[in-house]
Design a protein around this nucleic acid. Structure first.
Lengths: 114, 114
DNA sequence: TTAATAGTTAACCGTACGGTTAATTATCTT
DNA sequence: AAGATAATTAACCGTACGGTTAACTATTAA
Protein backbone atom coordinates (compact mmCIF):
# COMPACT_ATOMS: atom_id res chain seq x y z
CA UNK A 1 0.00 0.00 0.00
CA UNK A 2 1.30 3.42 -0.97
CA UNK A 3 1.55 6.52 1.18
CA UNK A 4 -1.08 9.18 0.75
CA UNK A 5 1.26 11.82 -0.65
CA UNK A 6 2.41 9.46 -3.40
CA UNK A 7 -1.20 8.60 -4.19
CA UNK A 8 -2.01 12.30 -4.32
CA UNK A 9 0.88 13.29 -6.57
CA UNK A 10 0.30 10.44 -8.98
CA UNK A 11 -3.37 11.40 -9.18
CA UNK A 12 -2.22 14.86 -10.27
CA UNK A 13 0.24 13.42 -12.79
CA UNK A 14 -2.30 13.14 -15.59
CA UNK A 15 -3.65 15.97 -17.76
CA UNK A 16 -7.14 14.46 -18.02
CA UNK A 17 -7.42 14.28 -14.24
CA UNK A 18 -6.14 17.83 -13.80
CA UNK A 19 -8.71 19.01 -16.36
CA UNK A 20 -11.43 17.24 -14.39
CA UNK A 21 -10.30 19.01 -11.23
CA UNK A 22 -10.30 22.35 -13.04
CA UNK A 23 -13.86 21.72 -14.19
CA UNK A 24 -14.93 20.76 -10.67
CA UNK A 25 -13.39 23.92 -9.26
CA UNK A 26 -16.18 25.75 -11.10
CA UNK A 27 -18.82 23.61 -9.43
CA UNK A 28 -20.37 20.17 -9.02
CA UNK A 29 -20.88 18.06 -12.12
CA UNK A 30 -22.16 14.63 -13.09
CA UNK A 31 -19.88 11.96 -14.55
CA UNK A 32 -21.18 12.52 -18.07
CA UNK A 33 -20.80 16.30 -17.70
CA UNK A 34 -17.20 15.72 -16.71
CA UNK A 35 -16.66 13.17 -19.46
CA UNK A 36 -18.14 15.27 -22.27
CA UNK A 37 -14.97 17.21 -23.22
CA UNK A 38 -13.01 13.95 -23.49
CA UNK A 39 -15.45 11.67 -25.27
CA UNK A 40 -13.88 12.51 -28.63
CA UNK A 41 -10.57 11.17 -27.42
CA UNK A 42 -11.50 8.49 -24.87
CA UNK A 43 -14.37 6.30 -23.72
CA UNK A 44 -16.64 6.80 -20.75
CA UNK A 45 -15.16 3.91 -18.74
CA UNK A 46 -11.78 5.59 -19.06
CA UNK A 47 -13.22 8.70 -17.40
CA UNK A 48 -14.84 6.56 -14.70
CA UNK A 49 -11.39 5.14 -13.98
CA UNK A 50 -9.83 8.59 -13.76
CA UNK A 51 -12.55 9.64 -11.33
CA UNK A 52 -11.83 6.60 -9.21
CA UNK A 53 -8.17 7.60 -9.02
CA UNK A 54 -9.19 11.11 -7.96
CA UNK A 55 -11.55 9.68 -5.35
CA UNK A 56 -8.86 7.42 -3.91
CA UNK A 57 -6.60 10.45 -3.64
CA UNK A 58 -9.38 12.20 -1.73
CA UNK A 59 -9.63 14.93 -4.34
CA UNK A 60 -13.18 14.16 -5.42
CA UNK A 61 -16.27 12.92 -3.63
CA UNK A 62 -19.25 11.36 -5.35
CA UNK A 63 -22.85 11.40 -4.13
CA UNK A 64 -26.03 9.95 -5.62
CA UNK A 65 -29.03 11.70 -7.07
CA UNK A 66 -31.36 9.48 -9.10
CA UNK A 67 -29.20 7.92 -11.81
CA UNK A 68 -26.60 10.65 -11.55
CA UNK A 69 -23.44 10.70 -9.42
CA UNK A 70 -22.74 14.36 -8.75
CA UNK A 71 -19.01 14.85 -8.24
CA UNK A 72 -17.54 17.49 -6.02
CA UNK A 73 -14.03 18.82 -5.62
CA UNK A 74 -12.41 18.30 -2.23
CA UNK A 75 -9.70 20.92 -2.44
CA UNK A 76 -8.59 20.20 1.08
CA UNK A 77 -6.81 17.11 -0.20
CA UNK A 78 -4.44 19.42 -2.07
CA UNK A 79 -3.31 20.95 1.19
CA UNK A 80 -1.06 18.00 1.94
CA UNK A 81 0.76 18.55 -1.35
CA UNK A 82 0.99 22.29 -0.75
CA UNK A 83 2.43 21.71 2.71
CA UNK A 84 4.99 19.29 1.35
CA UNK A 85 6.07 21.90 -1.18
CA UNK A 86 6.13 24.83 1.18
CA UNK A 87 9.68 24.32 2.58
CA UNK A 88 11.01 24.35 -0.99
CA UNK A 89 9.43 27.70 -1.76
CA UNK A 90 12.64 29.54 -0.85
CA UNK A 91 14.36 27.53 -3.55
CA UNK A 92 12.37 29.09 -6.35
CA UNK A 93 11.30 32.49 -5.16
CA UNK A 94 13.03 35.60 -6.39
CA UNK A 95 14.40 36.47 -2.97
CA UNK A 96 16.29 33.20 -2.94
CA UNK A 97 17.88 33.96 -6.29
CA UNK A 98 19.19 37.18 -4.79
CA UNK A 99 20.43 35.33 -1.70
CA UNK A 100 22.14 32.76 -3.88
CA UNK A 101 23.84 35.46 -5.93
CA UNK A 102 24.99 37.14 -2.74
CA UNK A 103 26.39 33.91 -1.33
CA UNK A 104 28.37 33.38 -4.51
CA UNK A 105 29.91 36.80 -4.07
CA UNK A 106 30.72 36.05 -0.43
CA UNK A 107 32.42 32.78 -1.40
CA UNK A 108 34.62 34.71 -3.78
CA UNK A 109 35.63 36.92 -0.88
CA UNK A 110 34.21 39.76 -2.90
CA UNK A 111 31.97 41.18 -0.22
CA UNK A 112 30.95 44.82 -0.33
CA UNK A 113 31.62 46.83 2.91
CA UNK A 114 34.35 45.05 4.93
CA UNK B 1 5.61 12.43 -25.04
CA UNK B 2 4.11 13.67 -21.80
CA UNK B 3 3.55 17.23 -20.70
CA UNK B 4 6.01 18.73 -18.24
CA UNK B 5 3.54 19.09 -15.40
CA UNK B 6 2.67 15.39 -15.57
CA UNK B 7 6.36 14.50 -15.65
CA UNK B 8 6.90 16.73 -12.64
CA UNK B 9 4.03 15.37 -10.56
CA UNK B 10 4.90 11.77 -11.30
CA UNK B 11 8.49 12.46 -10.29
CA UNK B 12 7.13 13.65 -6.94
CA UNK B 13 4.88 10.61 -6.60
CA UNK B 14 7.51 8.42 -4.99
CA UNK B 15 8.74 8.56 -1.37
CA UNK B 16 12.33 7.68 -2.28
CA UNK B 17 12.51 10.53 -4.75
CA UNK B 18 10.94 12.98 -2.30
CA UNK B 19 13.51 11.89 0.31
CA UNK B 20 16.29 12.54 -2.19
CA UNK B 21 14.93 16.02 -2.81
CA UNK B 22 14.76 16.67 0.93
CA UNK B 23 18.38 15.62 1.26
CA UNK B 24 19.40 17.86 -1.64
CA UNK B 25 17.61 20.80 -0.07
CA UNK B 26 20.32 20.68 2.60
CA UNK B 27 23.05 20.85 -0.01
CA UNK B 28 24.80 19.16 -2.91
CA UNK B 29 25.57 15.46 -2.63
CA UNK B 30 27.11 12.68 -4.68
CA UNK B 31 25.07 9.74 -5.94
CA UNK B 32 26.46 7.41 -3.27
CA UNK B 33 25.80 10.00 -0.56
CA UNK B 34 22.21 10.18 -1.75
CA UNK B 35 21.94 6.42 -2.05
CA UNK B 36 23.38 5.64 1.38
CA UNK B 37 20.10 5.83 3.39
CA UNK B 38 18.40 3.48 0.92
CA UNK B 39 21.07 0.86 0.33
CA UNK B 40 19.54 -1.38 3.00
CA UNK B 41 16.29 -1.48 1.06
CA UNK B 42 17.35 -1.07 -2.56
CA UNK B 43 20.34 -1.31 -4.88
CA UNK B 44 22.46 1.52 -6.24
CA UNK B 45 21.15 1.20 -9.81
CA UNK B 46 17.64 1.74 -8.43
CA UNK B 47 18.78 5.05 -6.96
CA UNK B 48 20.46 5.98 -10.25
CA UNK B 49 17.10 5.42 -11.93
CA UNK B 50 15.29 7.60 -9.42
CA UNK B 51 17.83 10.34 -10.01
CA UNK B 52 17.26 10.08 -13.74
CA UNK B 53 13.53 10.59 -13.19
CA UNK B 54 14.27 13.65 -11.06
CA UNK B 55 16.63 14.99 -13.72
CA UNK B 56 14.07 14.54 -16.48
CA UNK B 57 11.58 16.46 -14.36
CA UNK B 58 14.15 19.22 -14.07
CA UNK B 59 14.30 18.87 -10.29
CA UNK B 60 17.94 17.80 -10.10
CA UNK B 61 21.04 18.66 -12.08
CA UNK B 62 24.18 16.54 -12.13
CA UNK B 63 27.74 17.76 -12.72
CA UNK B 64 31.05 15.93 -12.81
CA UNK B 65 33.96 16.04 -10.44
CA UNK B 66 36.50 13.24 -10.83
CA UNK B 67 34.54 10.00 -10.47
CA UNK B 68 31.73 11.71 -8.59
CA UNK B 69 28.54 13.24 -9.96
CA UNK B 70 27.55 15.98 -7.54
CA UNK B 71 23.78 16.40 -7.60
CA UNK B 72 22.06 19.69 -6.97
CA UNK B 73 18.46 20.56 -6.30
CA UNK B 74 16.79 22.79 -8.85
CA UNK B 75 13.89 24.06 -6.76
CA UNK B 76 12.72 26.30 -9.55
CA UNK B 77 11.19 23.26 -11.25
CA UNK B 78 8.73 23.05 -8.36
CA UNK B 79 7.40 26.47 -9.19
CA UNK B 80 5.32 25.09 -12.06
CA UNK B 81 3.60 22.71 -9.65
CA UNK B 82 3.08 25.47 -7.11
CA UNK B 83 1.58 27.71 -9.75
CA UNK B 84 -0.77 24.99 -10.89
CA UNK B 85 -1.93 24.52 -7.32
CA UNK B 86 -2.28 28.18 -6.49
CA UNK B 87 -5.83 28.71 -7.87
CA UNK B 88 -7.03 25.85 -5.67
CA UNK B 89 -5.65 27.42 -2.52
CA UNK B 90 -9.01 29.05 -1.73
CA UNK B 91 -10.49 25.55 -1.67
CA UNK B 92 -8.49 24.47 1.35
CA UNK B 93 -7.60 27.58 3.30
CA UNK B 94 -9.38 28.44 6.50
CA UNK B 95 -10.80 31.62 5.04
CA UNK B 96 -12.57 29.51 2.47
CA UNK B 97 -14.11 27.35 5.16
CA UNK B 98 -15.52 30.50 6.70
CA UNK B 99 -16.76 31.73 3.31
CA UNK B 100 -18.34 28.36 2.66
CA UNK B 101 -20.05 28.39 6.03
CA UNK B 102 -21.30 31.91 5.37
CA UNK B 103 -22.67 30.95 1.96
CA UNK B 104 -24.56 28.09 3.53
CA UNK B 105 -26.17 30.53 5.95
CA UNK B 106 -27.02 32.87 3.07
CA UNK B 107 -28.65 30.04 1.16
CA UNK B 108 -30.81 29.32 4.16
CA UNK B 109 -31.93 32.97 4.11
CA UNK B 110 -30.46 33.19 7.58
CA UNK B 111 -28.30 36.23 7.00
CA UNK B 112 -27.24 38.42 9.91
CA UNK B 113 -27.97 42.17 9.46
CA UNK B 114 -30.71 42.51 6.82
C1' DT C 1 -43.31 -3.76 -18.79
C1' DT C 2 -40.26 -1.99 -21.95
C1' DA C 3 -36.97 1.24 -23.43
C1' DA C 4 -33.76 4.92 -22.59
C1' DT C 5 -30.32 7.21 -19.79
C1' DA C 6 -26.33 7.18 -16.45
C1' DG C 7 -22.72 4.90 -14.83
C1' DT C 8 -19.86 0.86 -13.29
C1' DT C 9 -17.55 -3.54 -13.72
C1' DA C 10 -14.98 -7.19 -16.07
C1' DA C 11 -11.71 -8.91 -19.08
C1' DC C 12 -8.25 -7.87 -21.85
C1' DC C 13 -4.01 -5.40 -24.08
C1' DG C 14 0.33 -2.81 -24.63
C1' DT C 15 3.47 0.02 -22.28
C1' DA C 16 5.69 2.26 -18.40
C1' DC C 17 7.43 1.72 -13.68
C1' DG C 18 10.25 0.10 -9.85
C1' DG C 19 13.11 -3.17 -8.81
C1' DT C 20 16.85 -6.83 -9.62
C1' DT C 21 21.74 -8.76 -11.12
C1' DA C 22 25.63 -8.59 -14.11
C1' DA C 23 28.54 -6.15 -17.03
C1' DT C 24 30.68 -1.75 -18.36
C1' DT C 25 32.79 2.94 -18.14
C1' DA C 26 35.52 6.34 -15.96
C1' DT C 27 38.55 8.21 -12.58
C1' DC C 28 41.79 7.97 -8.87
C1' DT C 29 45.42 5.33 -6.26
C1' DT C 30 49.26 2.28 -5.81
C1' DA D 1 49.84 -1.44 -15.29
C1' DA D 2 46.57 -3.11 -11.80
C1' DG D 3 43.16 -2.45 -8.46
C1' DA D 4 39.67 0.19 -6.01
C1' DT D 5 35.95 3.44 -6.08
C1' DA D 6 31.87 5.82 -8.29
C1' DA D 7 28.34 5.45 -11.17
C1' DT D 8 25.83 3.96 -15.35
C1' DT D 9 23.94 0.75 -18.70
C1' DA D 10 21.77 -3.51 -20.22
C1' DA D 11 18.72 -7.18 -19.82
C1' DC D 12 15.26 -8.96 -17.41
C1' DC D 13 10.91 -9.48 -14.23
C1' DG D 14 6.40 -8.65 -12.04
C1' DT D 15 2.95 -5.32 -11.42
C1' DA D 16 0.44 -1.01 -12.12
C1' DC D 17 -1.45 2.22 -15.49
C1' DG D 18 -4.27 4.02 -19.20
C1' DG D 19 -6.88 2.60 -22.54
C1' DT D 20 -10.31 -0.56 -25.06
C1' DT D 21 -14.98 -3.29 -25.80
C1' DA D 22 -18.72 -5.77 -23.94
C1' DA D 23 -21.73 -6.81 -20.36
C1' DC D 24 -24.07 -5.38 -16.33
C1' DT D 25 -26.81 -2.40 -12.70
C1' DA D 26 -29.85 1.22 -11.49
C1' DT D 27 -33.05 4.76 -12.18
C1' DT D 28 -36.41 7.37 -15.00
C1' DA D 29 -39.83 7.75 -18.65
C1' DA D 30 -43.29 5.64 -22.09
Amino acid sequence: MKDSLSILFSALADPTRRAILARLAVGEASVSDLAEPFLSSMSLPAVTKHLKVLEKAGLVTKSREAQWRPCKLNGRALQEAAEWMEPYRVHWEESFDRLEAYLKIVQQGDVPHE
